[in-house]
Simulated scan of single mutants.
Amino acid sequence: MRDMHEGMDLTTLRWFLVVAELGHVTNAAAELRVSQPGLSRAIARLEGELDVPLFDREGRGVRLSGYGRIFAEHARRLVAEEEAARRALAQAADPEHGEVVLAFLHTQGVWLVPELLRGFRQHHPQVTVRLIQDRAVTLEEAVREGRADVAITSPRPAAAGLAWAPLITERLQLAVPADHRLAGRRRVRMAELAGEPFVGIKRGGGLRTILDDLAAGAGFRPEIAFEGEELQTVRGLVAAGLGVALVSPAPPGNEPHEGVRHLGIADAGATRTIGLTWVEARTRPPVVDGFRRFVLSRVEELSGAPGYN
């Protein structure tokens, strides 16, 4: 395969990515407002330059080949780098105008993210913040591929090239129905929960991994009665009696969910550190760097909230 930077223009890379997303050359041409023959020739030239087939034909559509899937990862990064550079140049003269793309965990949308945005907008009202909400693994991909500038996530990303700074550490709790046998307790040990049905976050979520690890340390495997993505839903199902749940602390100032009691967990490891991640080597527009610095400046203040370290 030839060096992918040789003779390769970013317009063709963008066209390639649109075809990969839509799985259809004609539809991609309509989306891009170019002719279908012209788009087909551009893709053929790209395949010729790389000396590999990027797509497999499938009926009237196409899908990425094994080579295409590998190339798409690199193409997204190249396009993201070029877009970041353009944004940086456009905003260099006025860092108070521009856009920040912030990705964050579902569980941080109730208190932490709104608290940060409220403070940031007081000082930078002309900056637009676009939000992406998802699971940790998807957030990491969004930052690596340039679809997000920064992400508030947990655990610390393992991918090379991602910087990460801790913001807060949550002291996790056990949510139980108000009439549960343990509802009158202040703290419990995980070993006391063997055999209990759990309402859990879906696999791939940080809280689910911590639950599995805590249960394994206590000598049992949690029986999952239901899997969800948002803690508000999880707490509602706990109130309905479907099971117990490992949850982050209730946001400061929020009333506890009706029908649910929150207990401390005595086991070591019943905590979760939430941090900010970004690509260290990527060119950051001044507005993005300003947002990053603002978030990191709030660490001490955020750590003083009840239920957080």
Rank of each mutant, 00 (worst) to 15 (best):
W164N: 03
G38Q: 11
R69V: 13
H74E: 14
D212E: 15
F104A: 13
L207C: 05
T26W: 03
R86Q: 14
R298S: 04
A225W: 05
G23S: 11
G7P: 00
I274M: 08
P249G: 12
L10W: 11
R293Q: 14
R135L: 14
V18E: 15
A88H: 08
E141R: 15
V100I: 12
T107Y: 01
I210A: 00
R121S: 08
E196I: 12
V279G: 00
H74Q: 13
F291D: 01
G228S: 12
H180D: 15
H106R: 12
A20V: 13
L296Q: 07
G204S: 06
P95T: 03
S35C: 05
P256E: 08
L64M: 05
R187K: 02
A183L: 09
P285R: 13
A250Q: 01
P197V: 07
A85S: 08
T26R: 14
P95Q: 01
P256R: 07
W278F: 12
V34R: 12
L117W: 02
E300A: 15
F226L: 15
L263P: 08
L302F: 11
L102W: 02
L302S: 03
L78I: 12
I43D: 05
T107R: 12
A281M: 03
M1I: 00
R186M: 09
G61E: 08
H123C: 02
R185N: 01
A266Y: 00
E99Q: 10
A218L: 12
E255Y: 00
P306V: 07
E47Y: 00
A245T: 05
R77P: 01
G38M: 11
T233G: 08
L296D: 04
R121G: 01
V295Q: 04
L167A: 10
I201L: 12
R181I: 01
A44D: 11
H74P: 00
E73F: 00
R60L: 08
A163E: 13
G304R: 15
V238F: 01
H262R: 12
E31G: 00
H24K: 03
Q232I: 06
P125Y: 14
L22G: 02
L78W: 15
V110P: 00
E300R: 14
A142Q: 12
G241K: 09
R171P: 00
L237Q: 10
E141G: 04
H106Y: 15
L22R: 14
G259S: 03
L246V: 11
D212N: 08
S40R: 14
R221G: 07
Y308Q: 08
G68N: 09
A20Q: 08
V244P: 05
A240P: 05
L116E: 07
W164A: 06
W164F: 11
N309Q: 13
L162A: 08
H257Y: 10
P306A: 04
P53V: 07
I201N: 02
P155H: 09
L162N: 09
E192C: 02
T277Q: 11
E99A: 10
L246Y: 10
E196F: 03
L50H: 09
A148I: 09
A268Y: 01
G66S: 11
V295T: 01
A93S: 11
A175C: 07
R57H: 15
G228P: 07
A85C: 01
R186E: 14
L211K: 06
P249M: 10
M8H: 06
G109V: 05
A92C: 02
L112S: 09
R121H: 14
G48K: 13
L39C: 09
H180M: 09
S35I: 06
Q126E: 14
F55S: 10
G243W: 02
R203W: 02
E227V: 01
E21V: 02
